[in-house]
């Protein structure tokens, strides 16, 4: 294995059902239902998906949902804002733990 990520592997996602297919089927059915238009539009769901993809830093999801956002009618500005939201929440999540550090420091310091 020369490298861990290969863009062609995205097309092979379905092969995850090679073993215990019934589990993969449940996932793909649920996934399909989640992404259907509901109280949120496809565009809104695609923007959320792209934000999450950046937060979990999944190159497959970023590839799929960058295009998915365009195919749902999102603009470049909306896509960029979704990425900023993901980045800001990630940054905030790190920073807010500074309070825990402060608590720990206060506990041990005279």
């Amino acid at each position: 294995m020369g490298h861990y990520y290969d863009s062609k592997d995205l097309e092979r996602f379905g092969e995850i059902g090679k073993h215990r297919k019934e589990l993969a089927d449940k996932f793909f059915d649920w996934y399909g239902s989640v992404m259907e238009k509901g109280a949120l539009t496809r565009r809104e769901k695609s923007l959320i998906a792209l934000g999450v993809a950046h937060a979990v830093q999944c190159p497959y999801c970023i590839d799929a949902y960058a295009t998915g956002c365009l195919e749902a009618g999102a603009s470049n500005d909306e896509i960029t804002e979704a990425i900023h939201v993901a980045a800001a929440i990630r940054a905030g999540a790190s920073l807010v733990h500074g309070i825990q550090a402060d608590n720990a420091i206060n506990k041990v310091m005279m």
Partner: peptide, 17 residues
């Protein structure tokens, strides 16, 4: 029409936008 190598969005949704 799409501005590149991807397919169009849902027509009714996009019309509203």
């Amino acid at each position: 029409n799409p501005q590149g190598a991807y397919l169009p969005p849902d027509q009714d949704d996009l019309e509203q936008l």
